[in-house]
């Protein structure tokens, strides 16, 4: 288990955001893998799970919440940070409902992001983190 590579997944349909976030994490010595869509990320899961997932709320086809729902349904638990540029009033609640670890609004302050990643990684090592039983689709 100690040799499990520790990496962070970033899923965002905007390539500029994807690159910038990856660059920011790399400068801090974190390993970041980027995926331009939820489908790409799901396809890569067979190779191993990330320690933490940073996912954009709004994406074409499968959005961030839908991705979380699918992961939960398949019994895969990855502590997830939902980020969004579209700061709707209910986005935070909706993220919590589907079991996101935390929710951050874009643009992201490096300190908040790093703190969130830190928190997410710790929660992964603590078994029995919260789950959701309420599927509130609109």
């Amino acid at each position: 288990m100690a040799d499990t590579p520790r990496w962070i997944a970033i899923v965002d349909d905007d390539p500029s955001v994807l690159n910038a976030l990856a660059r920011l994490l790399r400068t801090r010595g974190l390993v970041a893998h980027t995926f331009p869509s939820a489908r790409d990320f799901l396809a890569a899961l067979a190779g191993g799970l990330p320690e933490c997932l940073i996912v954009d709320l709004q994406m074409p086809e499968i959005d961030g919440l839908e991705l979380l729902r699918r992961l939960t349904l398949s019994g895969v638990r990855i502590p997830t940070i939902v980020i969004t540029a579209h700061n709707e009033a209910d986005a935070r609640e909706r993220s919590a409902v589907v079991g996101a670890f935390t929710f951050l609004a874009k643009p992201l302050q490096d300190t908040s992001l790093l703190a969130a990643i830190d928190g997410a990684r710790k929660s992964a090592r603590t078994p029995g983190c919260r789950s959701s039983n309420n599927d509130d689709e609109n």
Binding site: D14, S16, V17, N19, A20, L21, R23, L24, I83, A85, H86, N87, K106, P107, L108, Q109, D110
Partner: peptide, 9 residues
């Protein structure tokens, strides 16, 4: 916000 996010990071 998208470009601002990229700029800030």
């Amino acid at each position: 916000n998208q470009p601002l996010t990229a700029i800030l990071s």
